[in-house]
Design a protein around this nucleic acid. Structure first.
Lengths: 197, 197
DNA sequence: GTCTATAGGGGGATAGAC
DNA sequence: GTCTATCCCCCTATAGAC
């Protein structure tokens, strides 16, 4: 998971630090929020000198974009692994299990993409106010495919309900600081998947 | 809805402006977010001279608290009206209808309390990081009472699912800028309420 | 009670040395 | 490519005139 810095970057000394910065940004923005995170915070977390950050990212908005693409990458790694499972129903249950496995982090900081969506919605000047929506759209599409392969009617509506349930339980779990909400609602989602035609 | 300024305030000239400030703060914080809203923004929206705000609220955090109590007040006015209905099931359906009626505002700015909860979670220094959770807890309790009166098993779990669905559909509707998500998911919630034992 | 002016601190971004 | 110093704007909060 942590980089060993000996894999040759695309440009001489650059890519190692760039990658560290992206990962650190994703983590720190999740924990502290976009508005309350300073460039110095990110530099410290990535163990990069403060002034050097601007060599890799010209503006704070570019860092936000990088964080979003990190979350997207992580999500696609997860769905990619789940795609190995033969049964679409098991894939959805695997997704729920992954969510529940993150319950402590979610209870403390919320869903990474969901909280980012809420914050970016207010950043109207940059073009990023709907950027998180695209990441969510991808998840919605993947879930819809699973329902479709299960032969369900209205796969789009089911996906909306499914992802909505995740965002809702994440927000409640975070607002009430209670990881058990993730466990309870996760169990309900699995039960419903098993009960479907 | 708008104040007529002739009702005698508790202290001479004070209460009228104080009330205007509270209402304006609730609205502007919802639209712009806590971190991106300045005292000047609030003063302008309330039509109060900028420097005068600090006479009524000593800090920005007090304004945030005021906004939260406005949302709480509005929610209790709504549940108070719904309490007039004889049937708890109809009360819950009335709540869903109220939510769907707000779909355009929700698609643009999210649920007022939910987005506030996400933002306040990051404001750890002030004691307000869990304050929005209390408002949500009240809603959960009220919903739970309705399920209890309907004689349902596990009213607490049902309330969690119900309010979670609202928060989830609000976040998705906002992230995707699509009010129809509120309509679709609202219709589903009503359908499920009608289908319950 | 009302309002202006400004102190004071912080943070995004840049210039330019190395 | 790396890093320091710093500019400059903005925002919270206060002092104090009216």
């Amino acid at each position: 998971m942590t980089n060993s810095m000996d894999s040759p970057p695309s440009r001489p000394k650059a890519a190692g630090k760039r990658q560290r910065l992206m990962a650190a940004t994703a983590r720190v923005l999740h924990e502290q929020g976009v508005e309350r995170t300073t460039i110095a915070d990110i530099a410290r977390a990535a163990d990069v000198p403060a002034g050097n950050v601007y060599y890799y990212f010209k503006t704070k908005d570019e860092l936000v974009e990088a964080a979003l693409s990190e979350h997207t990458k992580n999500l696609e790694a997860l769905t990619g692994r789940l795609d190995q499972l033969p049964d679409p129903r098991e894939r959805l249950k695997g997704l729920v299990n992954a969510w529940v496995g993150q319950r402590d982090i979610t209870a403390r900081y919320g869903c990474p993409t969901g909280t980012l969506a809420v914050e970016l919605d207010k950043r109207t000047e940059s073009g990023l106010d709907v950027a998180a929506g695209h990441a969510i759209r991808r998840l919605l599409d993947w879930v819809e495919q699973q329902y479709r392969q299960m032969g369900m009617a209205d796969p789009e509506g089911l996906a909306l309900t499914f992802v909505g349930a995740y965002q809702g339980m994440s927000l409640l779990s975070n607002a009430l600081r209670d990881p058990e909400i993730m466990t309870r609602e996760g169990a309900r989602l699995v039960r419903e998947l098993d009960g479907l035609a």
